[in-house]
Amino acid sequence: MRLSKSLNRSLWVFHFNSGSCNGCDIEIVATLMPRYDPERFGIKLVGSPRHADVLLVTGPVVHAMKDRLQRVYEQMADPKVVMCIGSCGQSGGVFFDSYNLDGPVGDVIPVDVYVPGCAPRPEAIIDGVVKAIAKLERIQEAKDE
């Protein structure tokens, strides 16, 4: 994996809904609006997983979405970061132990940053992005030494 400083300053985000109630998706859209303006840091939403650096997963991964989630994850070019937005992706949330869940997200694909909340506020999602960038910088420093 080749990490660079430019990656931290130009995170392109792909948004994947794995069976969420749309609460987290609305909060993601709220994070991207002019009030918070994440484009200041080069963050922008892209339409194809091939272009993306960050995969934002919402929802608890229902049975039908498991293969799709794995496939989208594999379609992304390295280096990539996975962020799991909302309580559902961590534990199943209100859908915990349901018959139709293959999740949570951590069981299907490796997750780098969890953002808890039902649904998490935009500030929490921004904090998650900051943590993801801090993690990338830590890995980079460890490699440089």
Binding site: R2, L3, S4, S6, L7, R9, S10, P34, D37, E39, R40, F41, G42, R50, D53, Q75, A77, D78, P79
Partner: peptide
């Protein structure tokens, strides 16, 4: 575009950063 939407917008050198990042990434 950012200023017309009442945003601050990315720095002027953002396209250079984007290209540098894309050059570092895998080409599938």
């Amino acid at each position: 575009a950012a200023h017309m939407q009442a945003r601050v917008g990315p720095p002027l050198r953002q396209p250079f950063i984007d290209v540098a990042k894309l050059m570092c990434k895998d080409s599938i």
